[in-house]
């Protein structure tokens, strides 16, 4: 019984001042700079995990990867049927098919990023609980997956736009900065929604309605310009909607008769920067709470 000691008599643990260097408080989050460094160290993990997830996603379906192309195409077909042919929201819009397809593909990317970002923490609890890594790697990875799908849908989109009678022009290159901005915005949004839904599980139930409403307000199958002709204040409001901005910019780049004012570029850039920086900080501030139960 010599070495045995009752817990009640156990000597108090070393006071904080006596702690060795290199010890850290369990569960404490690293400073932002160190956190970004850790994220950079995990870049291979993020890349591999993104690719692997993308391959796995459709592995159980018969058509497999083909769905990456089919889903946005079917979406475009349905919206064309309903809004173009039945409801005629196309009035006043030159080249409605291209207008619709670009709108759907770009907005679908934002929607998917938010949707998958909201599940990135809950769906990876096994990984989060067993291994230490900066959790921001997960929303980055889910956004990366939607980014790959965006690239695939771009490959589909270009021939469609050509078929509708557009001709390639130098301004088509403006699509590239627009995609960079929208990706940055989508990543920021994914960070925000990932933290919110990690703490409020009801978010996943509510999110489809929010995203749907956003879709309706973003001028995907109608022209904001056209319906707000007599109502400039509503036009400004709708223009401040980042979803509408990124869509408008892509259209202006690819469709000859679509024009966009320079201030939309300014708004879109501001949204992208604010969303990414704000989103990352917002997500990081709850870093220690993402492992559950």
């Amino acid at each position: 019984m010599t070495e045995l000691r009752l817990a009640a008599d156990a000597p108090a643990a070393a006071p904080v001042s006596a702690l060795r260097e290199g010890m850290q408080q369990a569960g404490a989050r690293p400073r932002l700079g160190a956190y970004l460094g850790q994220l950079w160290d995990r870049r291979h993990f993020i890349a591999s995990y993104t690719r692997a997830n993308n391959e796995v996603m459709y592995s159980r379906s018969f058509l497999g990867q083909l769905w990456q192309v089919l889903t946005p195409l079917l979406n475009a077909a349905v919206y064309y049927l309903v809004f173009g042919l039945l409801l005629h929201t196309s009035r006043g819009t030159p080249n409605f098919v291209a207008f619709l397809v670009i709108g759907i593909f770009v907005f679908h990317f934002i929607q998917q990023s938010v949707m998958r970002g909201s599940k990135s923490i809950a769906n990876n609890q096994g990984l989060i609980r067993s291994l230490h890594f900066p959790r921001a790697a997960l929303p980055i990875s889910t956004t990366g997956q939607t980014c790959i799908q965006l690239m695939v849908s771009m490959v589909v989109m270009v021939p469609i736009v050509l078929l509708t009678g557009e001709r390639p022009a130098l301004r088509w290159l403006l699509v590239v900065p627009d995609l960079v901005l929208v990706t940055s915005f989508a990543l920021g949004a994914a960070f925000v929604i990932a933290r919110i839904s990690a703490h409020i599980p009801d978010t996943t139930a509510l999110l489809p309605f929010v995203l749907r409403s956003w879709l309706y307000l973003s001028g995907i199958f109608y022209s904001i310009e056209h319906i707000t002709k007599h109502n400039p204040s509503i036009k400004i409001l709708l223009e401040l909607n980042p979803g509408a901005e990124y869509v408008e910019l892509a259209r202006a780049a690819l469709i000859q008769d679509a024009n966009v004012q320079l201030r939309i570029w300014a708004f879109a850039t501001a949204w992208a920067v604010v969303a990414l920086v704000g989103g990352l900080v917002f997500f990081w501030r709850a870093e220690e709470t993402y492992a559950r139960g």
């Binding site: 904080v16 060795r20 290199g22 408080q25 569960g27 609980r129 067993s130």
Partner: peptide
């Protein structure tokens, strides 16, 4: 492991502890 924050008191660890538990499948 740092997965559950203490309501009171403190825990200090060397490095980042790895937790292996039953049922936690990776992917």
């Amino acid at each position: 492991a740092g997965v559950m924050p203490p309501a009171q008191g403190r825990i200090y660890t060397e490095g980042a502890p790895a937790l292996l538990s039953v049922g936690a499948v990776l992917i």
